[in-house]
Design a protein around this nucleic acid. Structure first.
Lengths: 189, 189
DNA sequence: TATTTTAACTAACAATTGTTAGTTTGTATG
DNA sequence: CATACAAACTAACAATTGTTAGTTAAAATA
C-alpha cells in the first residue's frame, strides 16, 4: 500500500517552510531539499504545489467550523462560549502552528478552494458575532461595538501561531485560562 | 528635476498589490501593468524590487520607533501610555493600510535591512513590555502575565490594517477610544 | 532655438519556476 | 524465485522571473 506517511511528512515540512517565507517564496526545490530528495520525487506523493496548500488550509478551516458548530449548540452563557472559542483556537493552533501560519497568510493563493474557504470563514465570523450580540442583549457583555469586540479577540487568537512556539513552558490549559482572563476581563485594576 | 511623485506612486501601488498577494507573488510586470506602463520603465524610478519593499517597511518601522520614544518619555500613567500606543497604531495604520500589510507579512523578505528592522521591532516590544510591567508594579494593571497582555494588545493593533479599510464610517479618534475601552477594561459586565 | 533631462519604450538576458517523462532501485508479496 | 509496486532518480520542458542595454519622444531648461 502507498505510504501515506510520506505525504504527511511532505505537507508538514511544506507548512514549516510556508510559515518562514510564505507560500509563493517557497519553491518545490526548497521543499525537496529540506526533505533530502529531488523536486521531481515530490510528485510521487502530491499532485501539485497547490494541492499541498489546499491540504494544509482546508482541513484546519474545517476543524474550526466543526468546533464552532459544537460551541453554538452548547447551552452555555455567551461568556462561556467565548471561553470555549479561546480553547478551540489554542488547541488547534498548538497542534499545528505551521499550518496556522498558512491559514492566516496564504489563503489567498488557494485557487479552486478559495470560494469554499471564504465561505467557511464568513460563516465562522457570523457565528462569532452572533454570540457577542446575544451576550450584549443578555447583559452578560458590556454594551459595546460587537464588531470591535470580535475583531479584538479574533486578532489575538489568529496570532497565536506566532506566539505559542515561543512559550512552550506554558501548557495549553493554562494559556487558555490566562488568555480568557485578559481578553474578557481586561487588564484595568 | 526628477519627479519624486512618480516614485511615490509606484511604491504606493506596490504596497497595494503586496497587500493583496504578498511581496513574492507580485511581479514587476504586475506592478507595471497596474500603473499602465512596461516593467522596464519602473527602473527609471526605483532601483530594484527589494528597494520598493525597503521603502515601504523601514519608514513605517521608524514611525513606530519615534512614536514609542515620545510615549516612553511622556510622564503619564501606564494605562495612559497604553492608550497612547493604541492611538499611535490607529493613526499610522489609517494613514497607510497597504504599507502596514507589508510591514506585518513581508518583513522577512527584507535582505540588507532585515537586521535593522528586527532590531527596531525588538526594541519596540521591549519598551512595550516595560510599560506593562511598570503598570503591574504600580497597581494600575491587574496582576497578570505581562507577555500575554502585550501579545494580546499588540496582536489586535497589528491586525488593524485588515480592519480599518472596512470600517471607514468610524473615525480614528472614535476607534481609538472604543478599542482602548475593549482592550483595557475588558468586555465582562 | 539648442540642449538636456525625464520617462517611457523594445528587445533581450540568464536564472529560476512548476511540472512531466522515462528510468532505476530496493522491498514486499504471490 | 518472480512479480508488483513504491519512491527515488536524471533530464528536460515551456513559462515566467527580475533586470539591463539601448532607443525615442516629449518636456524643461539654457
Amino acid at each position: 500500500m502507498k505510504q501515506e506517511n510520506r505525504r504527511e511528512e511532505i505537507i508538514l515540512t511544506a507548512a514549516k517552510l510556508f510559515k518562514e517565507k510564505g507560500y509563493s517564496a517557497v519553491t518545490m526545490r526548497d521543499l525537496a531539499t529540506e526533505l533530502g530528495i529531488k523536486a521531481a520525487s515530490l510528485y510521487n506523493h502530491i499532485s501539485s504545489k497547490q494541492d499541498i496548500l489546499k491540504s494544509i488550509i482546508i482541513s484546519l478551516a474545517e476543524d474550526f467550523t466543526q468546533g464552532m458548530s459544537d460551541i453554538k449548540s452548547s447551552n452555555e452563557s455567551a461568556i462561556n462560549k467565548l471561553k470555549k472559542i479561546v480553547v478551540l483556537h489554542v488547541q488547534i493552533t498548538a497542534q499545528n502552528t505551521y499550518g496556522m501560519a498558512s491559514l492566516n497568510n496564504d489563503w489567498m493563493h488557494l485557487e479552486n478552494q478559495l470560494d469554499y474557504y471564504l465561505q467557511l470563514r464568513k460563516s465562522y465570523e457570523r457565528d462569532f458575532l452572533e454570540i457577542i450580540k446575544t451576550g450584549i442583549k443578555n447583559n452578560e457583555i458590556i454594551d459595546s461595538n460587537p464588531e470591535i469586540v470580535m475583531f479584538s479577540i479574533l486578532s489575538t487568537l489568529r496570532s497565536l501561531y506566532l506566539w505559542i512556539p515561543k512559550k512552550d513552558e506554558l501548557n495549553r490549559e493554562q494559556l487558555s485560562i490566562e488568555l480568557s482572563e485578559v481578553l474578557i476581563n481586561g487588564i484595568n485594576k
